[in-house]
């Protein structure tokens, strides 16, 4: 069983290094290399959203990350201090009228790459779950 609770100040430049350090801490899990790649991408996207849209780039507001993993799954929760957002009406960026849009792919990537995604507390918390399939190997 792995349990990690960490905080990051709302500074975008810290995101890639912070998420990499968390991925290092779960590297003993029996996941394939592309699964670690995808989990890091989802964590990066969730952190960037929390810092940019949730905490509005206020470096004094932290983003909290909780990770729990066992033999069956890994759960990552990312929580910001903002006002939340309308997570039920996020336009899909793959339609003919949205594919050319420059931004708006972060949550779509998370939903596509994770097995379960839920929002809580008006969207201030995103919970992402990746199932660990038997026989997974790096």
């Amino acid at each position: 069983m792995i349990r990690i609770s960490e905080k990051i100040p709302s500074k975008l430049e810290l995101v890639p290094g912070f998420s990499l350090s968390l991925i290092d801490k779960i590297s003993s899990l029996p996941l394939k290399e592309e699964e670690f790649f995808n989990i890091k991408l989802c964590l990066d996207e969730a952190l960037v959203n929390a810092i940019k849209h949730g905490n509005k780039l206020n470096p004094d507001l932290p983003v909290e990350v909780d990770i729990e993993a066992d033999d069956n799954s890994i759960t990552l929760k990312v929580k910001d201090q903002g006002a939340g957002f309308d997570f039920q009406n996020i336009p899909e960026p793959i339609r003919p009228d949205t594919i050319h849009k420059v931004s708006g792919r972060g949550i779509f990537l998370i939903k596509s790459l994770m097995d379960e995604v839920e929002f809580f507390d008006y969207g201030k918390v995103i919970k992402m779950v990746k199932l660990i399939r038997k026989g997974g190997r790096r």
Partner: peptide, 16 residues
């Protein structure tokens, strides 16, 4: 080795 959604956004801008 890695591209995130901000990278995709930059590529779409260049493409357009």
């Amino acid at each position: 080795s890695y591209v995130d959604s901000s990278g995709l956004a930059t590529l779409i801008e260049m493409f357009q």
